[in-house]
């Protein structure tokens, strides 16, 4: 069995799946762009109600976790098992922190009567209703991806611990890492589009 081509094949498979994810979120971003075009003023007003600080904090958390995941691959390949475990556990922690922030953020929005089908949104301007609808769908779907990504990272952490993921066979970690980076990529676009529209 040719190890090299095998490892490449494993990555190609993961990338093919990531393409479908890119198109999925791409479709939602097109939806956002078209409604932004139609209801620019309402979208700007909606964006002002989102917490820029929490958004920026979550961006930083995801960027750091992406770095630690990438570093954990280097650690595994250099046979620094302890480092790899620590980095992966830290990345999972970052994901959890992201979700806690998201929970607080959504909670605050619910508190202000800004949630799908709430009286404020239904009776308010249509553009704002659409803005928050897209906000919940896109950040919700993204949060689901964070949960899946954390599970994959935890699965890789188990692999590193029991030696199934090692310097020779690290496809599981690599593909989980690719998924985690995709989650980061999507957030990099979500953040300016929703939080920074002025």
């Amino acid at each position: 069995m040719d190890n090299s081509s095998d490892a490449t094949g494993v990555r190609i498979g993961m990338w093919l799946f990531l393409y479908s994810e890119i198109i999925l979120f791409g479709g939602l971003f097109v939806l956002y762009a078209v409604y932004f075009h139609n209801y620019a003023a309402d979208f700007v007003e909606g964006g002002r109600q989102l917490d820029r600080v929490i958004g920026a904090l979550n961006t930083i958390i995801l960027l750091i976790s992406s770095f630690t995941v990438a570093a954990s691959i280097t650690a595994v390949r250099r046979q620094q098992k302890r480092w790899a475990q620590g980095l992966l556990a830290f990345s999972c922690g970052c994901g959890a922190l992201f979700l806690v922030n998201k929970y607080l953020e959504w909670g605050a929005k619910f508190h202000h009567d800004l949630y799908p089908n709430s009286a404020t949104l239904v009776d308010g301007p249509p553009g704002q209703n659409i803005f928050f609808g897209l906000y919940y769908v896109i950040t919700g779907l993204h949060a689901l991806h964070v949960i899946i990504g954390m599970s994959l990272l935890a699965w890789s952490l188990i692999g590193v611990s029991n030696g199934k993921v090692n310097q020779l066979h690290f496809g599981r970690l690599e593909n989980s890492g690719l998924y985690w980076h995709l989650v980061d990529l999507i957030w990099i676009f979500v953040f300016p589009l929703f939080y920074l529209v002025l």
Binding site: D2, N3, S4, A7, A71, I73, T74, R77, L168
Partner: peptide, 10 residues
């Protein structure tokens, strides 16, 4: 075979 794949330094 594996080392031919690029290793990202820290």
């Amino acid at each position: 075979k594996h080392t031919s794949q690029h290793l990202m330094p820290y």
